[in-house]
Each structure stands twice: as C-alpha cells, then as structure tokens.
Design a protein around this nucleic acid. Sequence first.
DNA 1: TTGTACGCGTTATCAG
DNA 2: CTGATAACGCGTACAA
Lengths: 347, 347
Amino acid sequence: MEERKATIYDIAREAGVSAATVTRVMNGSPNVRPATREKVQRVIDAHGYAPSTVARDLGSGSSKTIGIILPSLRNPYYAALVSAADDEARQRGYSLWLYQLPREGEIDSAVVENLISRRLSGAFFMGGFYDVDRPDLREMLSRIGKYMPIVAICPPRENLGFVCMFNDLNSAIRQAVRHLHLLGHQRIAMLGGAARLLDSGQRAVAFVDELRYLRLPEVPEFERVGGGSAADGEQDAYRMMTQLRPEERPTAVLCYNDLVALGAMKQFRQMGLRLPEDMAVIGCDNQFFCDYTAPPLTSIDMQAEEHARSAIRELLSTTVNHSAAIVRSSTLVVRESCGVKLGWRKL
Amino acid sequence: MEERKATIYDIAREAGVSAATVTRVMNGSPNVRPATREKVQRVIDAHGYAPSTVARDLGSGSSKTIGIILPSLRNPYYAALVSAADDEARQRGYSLWLYQLPREGEIDSAVVENLISRRLSGAFFMGGFYDVDRPDLREMLSRIGKYMPIVAICPPRENLGFVCMFNDLNSAIRQAVRHLHLLGHQRIAMLGGAARLLDSGQRAVAFVDELRYLRLPEVPEFERVGGGSAADGEQDAYRMMTQLRPEERPTAVLCYNDLVALGAMKQFRQMGLRLPEDMAVIGCDNQFFCDYTAPPLTSIDMQAEEHARSAIRELLSTTVNHSAAIVRSSTLVVRESCGVKLGWRKL
DNA sequence: TTGTACGCGTTATCAG
DNA sequence: CTGATAACGCGTACAA
C-alpha cells in the first residue's frame, strides 16, 4: 500500500520518449519504429504500467461502467440477475456499479447525481411492480435517462421512456392453470403479488381468463393481495385458509414467486396438510432452490439470467432500440409439488 | 439522453463568478458573501448542477469506491454479504465496484490493472478456502495490496498480508456435536468442505476433538471431502451412505454449509429416510431458507452480514488495523432438523 | 516516426 | 471575499 502507480510521464521519461509515444505503444498503433516500441514496452512491463481509468474516463467523457439499480441483492432472484449481467458486461470489458434501492425512505437525490456524474455507459434497472411504481424511482430513472441509455427488466408500464424487458406470463400462467386442472384440481387460488389489481397485470388477467375458460370457480378469497417475500407467503397463506371454511378452501395455489411459494408451503405443512396430496403449489422464477424443496417445486421459468445478459447487450449495442418493450416467453418447469406422480386426483 | 451535464464553468459564467467561487458555494465555505452565495446557488439549483465525480477523482487521487471481489453472486451467502457491505458503504457516501472471480480459467490480469487504476479506496475480498488458495487469487490480492488497503472475510492463512476476518467455528462446531449427542446421536458425520484436510481448518479439528471428548466413534467415511454447492451435498451424501453398510451409517450429519445441507436433505429423503427421525442434519451460515426447509434447518450462524459491515468500516477507518485477523464468534441456531421436538432418541 | 499542446472538470493554492 | 492558475493523467489533434 506504499507504491504510487506510475504515470504515463514516468514511463515516457524513463524510456526517453514523449507521453504520446507511450500511448501509441499501449494502443498498438502501427506508426512506431520497432526499436522504439520495444524500448518503451520494456519500461511498461518493468513497471506493470496501466493507464489510469479515471484520467481516461475524464478525457473520453465516458467510463466503461454500467450502473445497476435493483431492489436488493438479498433476494436471490436479483442476485442471480446481477451475476449474469456482470458476466456479460465483464466479457465486453465493462464493469458494474451497484445501487440498491432503499427499502424505506426516499431515494437520495445525491446518489442520483453521483450516478450521473460518473459518466456511466448506461443504466440497468430491475424490479417488480412494487418498485417500478414508486414515484421516487420513476423520477430517478427519468432524470438518469436524460444522460444515458436505460434498459429495464420490470413489469411493462406506459411512458417509461426506455426499453423495458419482461415476460409473457400469459401463456405460462394459463399453462400452469391447465396443468393443475389436468391433475384434477378445481379450486385454484393465486397467492401474493397484486393479484386482481391492474398493477400485477398479466398474471391476474391470464389467471382469471383461464379459470373462466375451464369453467372453474372464481372465489374472491382465492386472489390474495400480498408481498413477495417468503414471510409474506407464509402469512397470506394463513389468512386465506383461515378465512374460508374447509370445503371452500383451494386444493392448489399459484404463487407470485418462489419465495412466496416457500412460505406458503411451510404454512400448509404447519396446518397439517400433506404436499402435494392435500395441496398443490406452483412458484414463479424457477430459482435454484426449487429442486431442493420437499416436494420439489414446480415453477414458471422466466429465463431471468438470459434476460439480464440480453439487457446488457442491448445497452451496449450502438443501435439504441427504441421499441418500448421486449417480450420473452416463459415456460412451466414441472417438478413434484403438484403431484404429477400421483396421477389424477379424486374429484 | 441528449442533455450534456453542466460543468462548473457553465455555472460560473451564468452566475458571473469564477469557478472557484462555485466550488466554495458547493462546499459551504464560509468565505463567500451572502449575496454572492445566493446568486450562485440559484444557478446551481436551476441546472441541477453536481460536480463531476470523475474529474474530482482525478484531482483528489482517490474515488469513494470500494472494489469487492467475490466468487459469485449466485451463491446467496455472498449476495447477502455484498448487500450488507453496500448498505454500509452507501451510508458513508461510498459505492461498490463489483468483481466476480472467474469460475474457470485464470483471473484476467487486465482486470486487476483496471481495478488498480480506478484509484479505489480499498478492496474487500470474500471467499472460501477453495478460493483463498487459488494461486492467481493470491497473486491478484498481493498486487492490489500494494496500492490500497484490503480486508477479507475468508479462512485464515499465513502471510496473507491483509486483515482477514473469520469465525471462531471451534465452539460452534463443538456445540453442534454436543447438541446432537444430547439428542442421543452416536454416529455423527461431516459432509462437504475439505473435512480432514488442513485447508478447511478449524471445522474438522473441532469436530474430531469433540468426537473424542464425547468418546464417539470416528469413522473415516464420516468425513467426506466435497464441494460447497447443493449438488455437491446431494452427491456426497449419496456416496457416503452407499459406501457404508446400513448399521455403519451415521444418524446425523454436520454439513459444510446450508447449501450442502439442502442437497443432503434431498438425498436422504429420496433414500426414504425420514427427517429428522432417521437422520439429523445441521447446516452452516444460517441462510434465509433455513426457516423454510422441511424440517426447518438447524444451522450455525456466522453473523455474516455484521461481518461484512464491520469489514467496510475497517476498510474506511483511518487507523489501518495491522492485526492479521479479526475473529467473531458463531452460534448454533436450533430449529427442527435434529428433532428437538422428538426428545431423546432410542439408543 | 515522434513530439508539442490542449482539453476533459475539479479543487487547492496563492495573489489580490 | 474573489479570481487566476496549476495540477491530476490521459488521448488526440496537429506540427515537425
């Protein structure tokens, strides 16, 4: 921690040339006499010289860094997205600058200015409907968008002003409902997220559409508005079940995400229900732990990591995509939490 | 994405003062006439002016950014650490620059130079014994250490050259073994990590020590060398069990971490074992999902996030701590994966 | 082929 | 109290 990093001038002086020549050698410019090149290169190697990113950024007016804005790395879903984004960016010589949204309180405008004043190459926002509708977040993105391109993985909204990537949950949700129906389920509930509200959008719509198509009962209590954490799932499952008489209760639940499913499964277990015999559960996101729950959790795969990589590519592509949205399909990954091995259930 | 950020000169010109005065106003220097201050402030507000972080960094020779080096954000354990570190750093006006170690292949030396040339305030490394013993990683840290302070959360090693924080697993491991013993377990195994090898250090030593103290059998097959992922846990559990005759098998396993425990539990379940009646399991790290496994997983809490916050504070403290190591205690969080509710098992 | 000069946006110093 | 100037380290025109 004592050494001072050699500057281009140190190298130039020691090699007996000008700074410009050092730059030429560094960049492999052809206009350098071989002898000179070798001489300079030797000094460069000797010092392990590397040009200052900071000075370069100041001159060039842009840093090869992408700002990444997300709710929290504590949610393994976002952590995996960031990881994939970092891989993709790194591969192209870019790196990531992190910003987690404050859980409570408003976004610090100083942070926004800081982010902008870093001359980032772009910003990548990811969040759920809960985040994308925060006024302070919208303002932040709107301000940032004036200075750099933005891409986002979030629920689609009008007038977002940047490219927004999301999944076509419609087909996956309907597929999930059909899956449950085929296994003999009649009373199917949705748990967590904003359910009926416009906010959670497609999920609720597709869910209800499919219920109607299959002529399955629509019970108000089957659509719980709730948060997206495991604790929320645990709590909301409890509320839904205790609010209904035994014969009114669902035999299957479609959860807002895998965390909610985790919580719901715990609750059902505590209530003495057998999984999947007494209650089928479907999650969403297909997170790593779906393979390890008991029983393994059937989940909707959103191809999240591919999404993230694609977002980085989009951000770095010169041809800025002006389309407001990019949609990816999602698929149902069937495991055992709905009882496929049990076959048809008794109706 | 069209606007150009106003510079200090834009502000100065418009306010009819010099750049120096703008700086004074920004920094709240007392040596400014109130009238001037107000005039300048008005222009600053009108433009939403904020000084360029890049230019400031170049001048000051240091950016308020901390480089964070970790195996992968896909491991929720590290993700949680990074999240906590970010919270702590952000609170002090610092931000995080991310670097995930390549899973395969060597560390790109260009990345190291890049990291150094960013004039970071410090570097924060976190990793397991598998990482800390990589030659390329050691070289990287050694090089980085010449230019900035480093703190690490990793297994202790000789001559690391920087502050290394880790947990005193000794007491926790022994406590875990005693916990199992009190519940009537005689045949206790360790699963994953480097077990007997010096590398995994304290865990294995403490484990064996306690076995001897309690006069419990030491079976070679009870100490599986293995990886740290859920898939590793699944595989290693299988190998250990099939390698032994039924009466030789353990009735309890102490896992390298919670992911390994997750995999092992799945394997045991597939083998038809009941948890915890036929097999007790203990994990390590006390991750968020421990509450949601079936049964909830008893785990050793390393206070990982507090560790991370403390690491950031250490890094930012002026008084560089020259001690080679900082040890924290760890505690056993008892849930139900060892059958506390069952009481004593039949011997 | 090589060197000189300037701009990038700030802050600190020093002079007024 | 305020302004001019230098320095931070680099790349890039332009001149030689």
